[in-house]
C-alpha cells in the first residue's frame, strides 16, 4: 500500500532524488545549525552587555548604543551581511582570509544583538524594584545582586521571547547562502541546479526548516513548564 502511495507521489515529489542528496542536506543542516548556535551564544553575551549599557543611563554610552541599535533595526539583514562581508577587510585587512562562516556569524551576531538586548533589558526591568533593594539591604555587591537575585528572575521572564528570537535566527541563516556558506538553502539549490527539480529542492528545504522550528517549539514548551513549576515552588518556599 505504502509503495503504491510512493509511486503516486513520485511525479510531483520524487523523494528518491532527495535521498541521493542526503549527504549534502546533512552538511547544510550542520552549517545552518552551527552558524545559528554560534551567533546565538555571542548575541546573548553582547546583548547582555548592550542591555546593561542602556540601563546605565550614562549618555556617552547610551547614545552610541542607540545609534547602533537603530541602524541595525532600520536596514535589511541582506545588506548587513554584504557590508560585513565586503567592508570588514577594508577596516581590518586580516579578516580578508577568515572563512565565510565566521564572517556570516559576525554579521548575524551584529544583527541579532540589539534584539537580544531589548529582550534581556525588559526581563531585567520586569524584576520588581523591591528585590534589588532587598539585595542591597543585605549588603550584596552589584555583581552579586545580578547573579543571585536579578538574573535568575529575569531569566524566567525572558526565556519565551528568547526562544522566539532564536527561531528567527535559525531562519536568518538562510541568507548566508549568498556569501557562499553551504547552508540548508544551498543544499536545496544544488539539487535544483543539478537535477532541475524545483519541487524537490524547495519543498525539502521548507520541510527541514519546519522540523527545526517544531523542535524549538517543543523545547520552549518544556522550558516554560519547567520554569513555571520551579518559580511557583520558589514563591511558596
Amino acid at each position: 500500500m505504502l509503495e503504491l502511495l510512493g509511486q503516486q507521489i513520485v511525479p510531483i515529489y520524487n523523494y528518491r532524488i532527495v535521498l541521493q542528496y542526503a549527504d549534502e542536506f546533512s552538511r547544510g543542516i550542520g552549517n545552518t545549525l552551527s552558524a545559528a548556535a554560534a551567533s546565538l551564544v555571542l548575541s546573548i553575551a553582547f546583548g547582555f552587555l548592550l542591555a546593561l549599557i542602556r540601563l546605565s543611563g550614562r549618555s556617552w554610552l547610551t547614545y552610541p548604543a542607540a545609534a547602533y541599535t537603530h541602524s541595525i533595526r532600520a536596514t535589511p539583514l541582506l545588506l548587513q551581511i554584504y557590508i560585513v562581508y565586503f567592508g570588514l577587510p577594508l577596516l581590518i585587512p586580516a579578516t580578508g582570509r577568515w572563512s565565510e562562516v565566521v564572517l556570516g556569524v559576525i554579521a548575524l551576531t551584529l544583527h541579532t544583538t540589539p534584539y537580544m538586548a531589548e529582550i534581556i533589558r525588559s526581563g531585567i526591568v520586569s524584576v520588581p524594584r523591591g528585590q534589588r533593594e532587598g539585595a542591597i539591604a543585605v549588603g550584596m555587591t552589584p555583581i552579586q545582586q545580578y547573579r543571585h537575585i536579578i538574573l535568575p528572575q529575569a531569566f524566567t521572564n525572558t526565556l519565551p521571547p528568547l526562544l522566539g528570537q532564536s527561531a528567527i535566527l535559525v531562519k536568518d541563516t538562510s541568507l548566508l547562502s549568498l556569501i557562499t556558506v553551504f547552508d540548508l538553502v544551498s543544499a536545496g539549490m544544488l539539487l535544483n541546479s543539478e537535477r532541475i527539480r524545483p519541487n524537490e529542492g524547495f519543498l525539502s528545504v521548507a520541510v527541514i526548516y519546519l522540523a527545526i522550528y517544531f523542535v524549538m517549539l517543543m523545547l520552549s514548551r518544556v522550558a516554560e513548564h519547567y520554569l513555571a513549576g520551579t518559580s511557583r515552588k520558589a514563591r511558596t518556599a
Partner: peptide
C-alpha cells in the same frame, strides 16, 4: 502561523514562485 513562522521568507518566496505553478 507556525508554517509561515517556521520557514524563512526566502524559501516561502521560492515556493510561491516556482513550486505552486507546477
Amino acid at each position: 502561523i507556525h508554517i509561515l513562522r517556521g520557514t524563512p521568507f526566502l524559501v516561502q518566496l521560492y515556493i510561491a514562485y516556482f513550486v505552486l505553478p507546477n
